[in-house]
């Protein structure tokens, strides 16, 4: 009995720091954000008045908020399928490689591990007009016209998506490769003996068994694209989310409301909306995609 108490006490002692951090740096701020979203607080005024849902009404009447919301959904809609499909195809091909695996993997993760700020700027330069922009140089070499990329209201968002896909694909390839290697060889061999062709092997065995990995990566990538910020901040002029708000995602909207206009009520209301979107999409994805496969 005494030993048991000692054990529990030690356990909580060992957990003391993480639990304290959790309470003060995660839990309290979360609750506090919810609370502030129902007040009219800006940093300068000392009083917080409870205003009910006024901030929520205000942001939904704000056209910039609606554009940011739409942009965020565009990032997800363009980005997530591209990342998942591209990395799955590449991983299926790369799974056949046996030599120098470690070296190749190091190369694919390079975009993922280098600072996002630096890679964003690198791409920003690459997207420029000739002679600095190597992408346009390349297009001109092929006889194609120069494009404006980040300077255009229609091309800027897809250009940022391309950069983000470039960053995330390497990471997803590695996860898919690990998933592929965990599929028992016997399943594939048994199916081959039964006369299954390559396509059947892929669609009836490999992909269904890879489902947990696909679910994991889709949820994770969705959250990543919903939270997109650093790339947009660094790839648009003055971190504005321009041209003309065409690339501004929710997180940048929140950042500007909170730290440029100091309108904390509106900013936190927008964070609550973002939180609900992330929660909702994640739950739906887990429900829809997570079908158990057993053989």
């Amino acid at each position: 009995m005494k030993l048991r108490h000692k054990k529990i006490l030690t356990a909580y002692l060992f957990l003391l720091v993480p639990l304290t951090f959790f309470a003060f740096i995660r839990f309290y701020p979360m609750i506090s954000a919810f609370y502030i979203s129902f007040t009219d607080w800006n940093i300068i005024s000392p009083v917080k008045n409870f205003v009910g849902l006024a901030n929520y009404v205000k942001i939904f009447n704000d056209s910039v908020f609606r554009i940011s919301l739409l942009n965020t959904l565009k990032y997800v809609a363009y980005g997530v399928p591209s990342v998942i499909v591209l990395s799955l195809i590449l991983a299926l091909l790369l799974n056949n490689i046996t030599k120098l695996q470690g070296f190749y993997r190091l190369i694919y993760v390079m975009p993922y591990i280098t600072p996002l700020v630096a890679t964003s700027w690198v791409w920003r330069w690459m997207y420029q007009k000739p002679p600095t922009g190597i992408i346009n140089n390349f297009l001109n070499m092929l006889g194609l016209p120069t494009r404006s990329f980040l300077m255009s209201t229609t091309e800027a968002l897809p250009s940022i998506v391309v950069t983000t896909v470039w960053i995330e694909v390497g990471y997803c390839i590695i996860i898919f490769l690990a998933g592929l290697q965990s599929i028992p060889k016997e399943y594939l061999e048994a199916a081959r003996v039964d006369g299954a062709n390559r396509r059947q092997l892929l669609f009836k065995i490999t992909i269904p068994l890879l489902n947990p990995v696909i679910v994991f990566l889709s949820v994770m990538q969705t959250i990543i694209f919903l939270r997109i910020f650093t790339q947009v901040y660094n790839m648009s002029d003055q971190g504005s989310g321009g041209p003309l708000n065409s690339t501004k995602p929710l997180v940048l909207y929140i950042y500007q409301k909170a730290f440029k206009s100091f309108d904390m009520g509106t900013a936190t209301a927008a964070t609550v909306i973002l939180f609900l979107i992330i929660l909702g999409i994640t739950v739906v994805q887990l429900k829809v995609l997570n079908k158990k496969v057993e053989y």
Partner: peptide, 16 residues
């Protein structure tokens, strides 16, 4: 809480 975007934490943390 791991799912929360850091931006949701950053405003209250800044204030504290």
């Amino acid at each position: 809480t791991q799912m929360l975007p850091p931006v949701i934490l950053v405003i209250p943390i800044y204030l504290i």
